[in-house]
């Protein structure tokens, strides 16, 4: 039950001229699951290591429930980190790996054995205690690593790219497992990932870090609906950025005058909307209706990606492949952009 707060955290590695992490501030409420999202080399893992005490910050502070932990040794912080490549001790059995933290705390062997049994049950690997890690699949190793971390009942759990080494079907299984264990135990959890899908799937809140600085810290859906700037929108798969001016209600641009949702910013800016929010047809009241020409068709199985041309402007759209009979290059396609899905940055 720990409220983690990161204040102006900065790390400049010896010999480096630019900071790997530049004044990152973040509040992670007790029991929440937060993602640090960003491309590789943006300072995510550096941040985790500083929270865990494995790396010393150049400046800034990390507090747990208001108390600075920078002077605490890593083993005294109550923070456990699960690494991306699991790092199970190869010469130990699965059970010894899981019981490692308790053994280091000099717990009674009988108690260790009992709790290791319970923990393996919890991660659904009850019969694998005697195996060596090398005899396990990637997904099983991941679960052992998780069990090894959770057995010491940490206040804060740090996960480094927890889903990225897993197959698609294992990802959802592991996601459910991590979420249910995390909710059950109420552990404040931070994980880092470069994959926006992983962040959205797993996290309560997402902190997007680009170039060592935090861009936006919000609930996952906000990044799709209300990105703070073009770089953020692009990171989340945004493609449509159309320059123009907004008066708060109408956006005037090459596509024409489009009506905006409540609360849109005013002045010069860029109109953005997600490809999947481009609708086929003129819409019920012909609001924001446009006529486009199909310039390119990419069939992706469950969806079809279209490059459309409205006058001189290119619009990216993702549509249901079965919504109309066929999509052919050169065809004219009426579309509309629901005003609730538009946003000005």
């Amino acid at each position: 039950m720990t409220h983690v707060s990161i204040k102006e955290l900065t790390k400049v590695y010896p010999g480096a001229t630019t900071p790997s992490l530049d004044r990152l501030s973040l509040e992670i409420p007790t029991g929440e699951l937060t993602a640090l999202l960003g491309p590789s080399g943006c300072g995510k893992t550096t941040t985790m290591k500083m929270i865990a005490g494995l790396l010393e910050p150049t400046s800034g502070d990390v507090t747990f429930d208001g108390r600075s932990v920078l002077r605490d040794k890593p083993e005294d912080r109550g923070v456990v980190m699960v690494f991306q490549n699991y790092l199970l001790f190869p010469y130990m059995s699965v059970a010894d790996n899981v019981g490692f933290g308790l053994k280091m705390r000099k717990k009674d062997p009988a108690e260790i054995k009992r709790r290791v049994g319970e923990m393996l049950e919890l991660v659904k690997l009850p019969d694998l205690g005697d195996r060596k890690p090398s005899a396990l699949s990637g997904g099983q190793q991941q679960r052992v690593a998780l069990a090894r971390a959770l057995i010491v009942q940490p206040n804060v759990l740090l996960l480094d790219e927890p889903l990225s080494n897993l197959d698609a079907h294992l990802r959802f299984e592991m996601r459910d497992l991590i979420r249910s264990l995390q909710q059950e135990m109420g552990i404040t959890t931070i994980f880092v990932t470069h994959d926006q899908e992983e962040a959205v799937v797993l996290a309560d809140r997402v902190a997007l870090i680009l170039d060592g600085q935090m861009k936006q810290y919000d609930r996952a859906d906000v990044f799709y609906k209300r990105p703070i700037d073009e770089a953020t929108a692009r990171f989340f798969g945004g493609h449509n950025f159309i320059p123009g001016t907004s008066d708060g209600h109408v956006f005037d641009c090459a596509l024409g005058k489009l009506s905006l949702p409540e609360g849109a910013t005013t002045g010069a800016g860029k109109l953005t909307f997600r490809p999947e929010n481009v609708r086929i047809g003129a819409g019920p009241d012909a609001q924001n209706a446009l006529t486009s020409t199909i310039a390119e068709v990419i069939y992706l199985g469950t969806q079809t990606r279209l490059k459309l041309r409205v006058g001189e402007t290119e619009v990216d759209a993702v549509v249901n492949p079965n919504e109309i009979e066929s999509y052919a290059v050169g065809d004219t396609l009426p579309i509309h952009l629901p005003s609730a899905t538009l946003w000005v940055i």
């Binding site: 494995l54 083993e75 980190m81 933290g101 705390r105 090894r148």
Partner: peptide, 21 residues
């Protein structure tokens, strides 16, 4: 050094990390 980092974060002291990892 990652194995040692894991051990430290699981609660091993410096000496324990050397001895057991």
């Amino acid at each position: 050094e990652d194995y040692e980092s894991v051990a430290r974060s699981l609660g091993a002291s410096k000496w324990q990390t050397f001895r057991y990892v």
